[in-house]
Write a protein that binds this DNA or RNA. Sequence first.
RNA 1: GGGUCGCUAGCUCAAUGGUAGAGCUGCGGACUUUUAAUCCGUAGGUUCGGGGUUCGAGCCCCCGGCGACCCA
Length: 508
Amino acid sequence: MSEETGGPELQPDPEDDLPEQMRIRREKREQLAAQGMEPYAIGLPITTTIAAIRAAHPDLPIDTATGDRVGIAGRVIFSRNTGKLCFATLRAGEGTEIQAMLSLANVGEEQLAAWKDLVDIGDHVFVAGEVITSKRGELSVLADEWRMAAKALRPLPVAHKPLSEETRVRMRYVDLGVRPGAQQMARTRVAVVASIRQSLSSRGYLEIETPMLQTLHGGATARPFVTHSNAFDIDVFLRIAPELFLKRAVAGGLERVFEVNRNFRNEGADRTHSPEFTMLEFYQAYADYQDIATLTRELIQEAALAAFGSLTVTHPDGTELDLSGVWPQVGLYESLSEAIGETITPATERSRLLELCERDGIDVAPTAVNGKLVEELFEHHVISGFTGPTFVMDYPVDTSPLVRGHRTKPGVVEKWDLYVNGAETGTGYSELIDPVIQRERLIEQASLADRGDAEAMHLDEDFLRAMEHGMPPMGGAGVGIDRVLMLLTGQGIRETILFPLVKPEQRQ
RNA sequence: GGGUCGCUAGCUCAAUGGUAGAGCUGCGGACUUUUAAUCCGUAGGUUCGGGGUUCGAGCCCCCGGCGACCCA
């Protein structure tokens, strides 16, 4: 890095510019080593956990000595010094806390002085001693020995002021340590995903893994991320959906399959969208979109029970969301017609749809198909009226190239979208399995792509070949796991994702 | 894509165009029972970056960066 000219004492010390608090902590790290203490210890003689101590001594009376000697580690989150007696609150990773007490009588002058000089909030420390309760009744470890486990060189943020949202997202490692809700979200996600896996597994579904690197992007209309395979010297796409591969699996006889994994869409990021997000997709041979709607509802209800023990969840803003019972279904065209006081059907003239969009100031791309116009109008007029979970039924054909035509209604397909609190949470189909119609639909999509629609699908001959070999009738759905977390917790997508993509900071 | 708001000490935030402050944190000191300890003392700043207007800019103008919210 720097040139070897001149001795080290002539080099400007890069740490001279550090904020005072960071400089001091670096000095303390040096002092630990100088006093023969390892600032980053390994092999500490830990005998138990903070949680186990709390569980073993739930109701000790005030000022009690147990005779129970333990060695524990934890992060210092509070520190109080009353002279010849120091208190520190140690927090385990999972959030349980216990008090450590270091007295002159028990650790001696040297160790007490080292503690006072060298331990800061944020440090991980090891403490060994007897489990007692203090004169105020606080369960404590009365130390006869302490060691540094890991010296923190940056100060922890002030514990009693919430971190700004940006800091929470950018420094999740700090957020997790200081805000119990951050860990709760991570644990809720695990509970939800585990529940969904269990629910599907118990219904005979196989969890399979399909490609994330795809030579054609398909299964949804979205802009993909593009990367390059050096080995094959071809561009490949990060998948926008696993749908076409899951259907291939069903075609091969894996009649109930699902996948929970990441999708990537090269589009905007906001409160409800993340460039990478976790999608559940599941497909079941001989099911239709009503069967799949029922299963989707059950998956979410079972997940709510697993994560919160209730079908009614309360959000931080106080609103309650009731997920119980059977969820209502409303027709897309019917609800739109009612909302604008004019009958809209798949046969409504394009010119009229354009007029209606114009009237409402809805910007539509020139390439937008009629169905897209209807969906835009629907989103503009109807969605905000939904409160609880609602299935919107029967979508336009031209925006749904992978869905089979409705068995009785002309011009629409057997597709639903699930809306909860105004956010699209999932979609389900009676899948199109007629390879001739599928080819026509995909050719139409390909022509849209040729005309500049970057979201349109491309012709996937291998997928068609699979269908031509015979694909059983099936229903399938995609459910956004992050969206499910959002509806259960009432928080934005960036809080449901542990480490969401953020723009790099300019400096450092 | 458009609009509005924000970015100031380690953290959370103040500051009519006129000497950049507070709380917590830190540092020094006192205290053997504290719970966001208390008390005394004290340090800490490229006000996101660049340019402009002005005698003078954290504040006004322009460009850029990052973020939040609203809209289409």
